[in-house]
Amino acid sequence: MCRSDVRMVLFGSISLALFAFSVPMVLAQDFPTKPITLVIPSRAGGGHDLTFRAVVSAASQYLKQPIVIRLEPGGLGAIGSDQVSKARPDGYTLLAGGSGWSSAQPAIEGRSKGPDDLMALCRINYNSLMLVARGNGPWKNFKEVMTWVQANPGKLVVGVGTRFIRDDFFWRKLMKDRGISVKIVTYQGGGEQLLATLGGHSDTGGASTATYMPYKGTGKLIPLLWLDSVRHPAIPDVPTAMEEGINFVSRDWRGVLAPKGTPAPIVQKLVDAFRKMTETESVRNMIKGYGDDIQFLGPEEFSKLWRDEYEELKKNADVFKH
């Protein structure tokens, strides 16, 4: 390398450093001055797409700038997550995080980016899951299913819709903790999996409250457990896993994440704006329409929750190995 090259590189890096240093100072005062990009690392029309489109529809009311959604599907969420983790931490590039690509993938497979590489801004909401059994089986509730499993080891056919999280994690952890054995059959998505339970091809499956409601009282699906910490008002007689002595909650969350090092004033501004967006009447109605709720959490609580989920998955990663 000749001398002028060295000088160029030196000059370049100094000016770059100066530039990078000056950015947060300018931004903290009147952030944002241009549209913000929210990267959603999953396909169009998925749960994250729908939820975040509803939420950011109110963005310009509170930020004076719109939030533009950029879909980066591919690599099971890893591609979009990697991009945001490497983006400039100036608040203009955010990530729609989720339990799948922000916790399970990094904790179990070492792919995508987890709480070590991204910072938490806020949680928008979460989905829990209901375990159901086919209607014509020899059981009326979860206890009877467990009794049957004990009498017939390795015979219960459990259909799950997603790998690593939700019911997949529930059953694999239960097998490890209680020393029981069931057959876990992985389907492509919740719809196929529930169809298999309705058709009697699986003994148990998972459902959201919205998909279960039309079957309530028909006897075609038997509700077993609600995998949240408290019972759901729409299905008040379905016990939680905790009540059955299983320390497990499934909270498939949707949250806003940012590159590490985003300045605190900007984080504060964004969190406040997201909080207001989720309190907006039209946004709330849309989310309700999807059969979901708003369960907003600020940075402190949310990052603890995310960290706990990640560590729990990491600790139990062996249950997914074959």
């Binding site: 029309g45 719809g191 309705l198 919205a210 039309p214 079957y215 329409g289 999807y290």
Partner: peptide, 24 residues
């Protein structure tokens, strides 16, 4: 009440927005 593909899943959501739960 079970959508068979992604487009139908979107229409499912549209029905839900209007308070209609498709099913038996």
């Amino acid at each position: 009440g079970i959508p068979g593909n992604l487009s139908i899943a979107m229409i499912f959501v549209a029905l839900m927005i209007h308070g209609i739960r498709p099913g038996p």
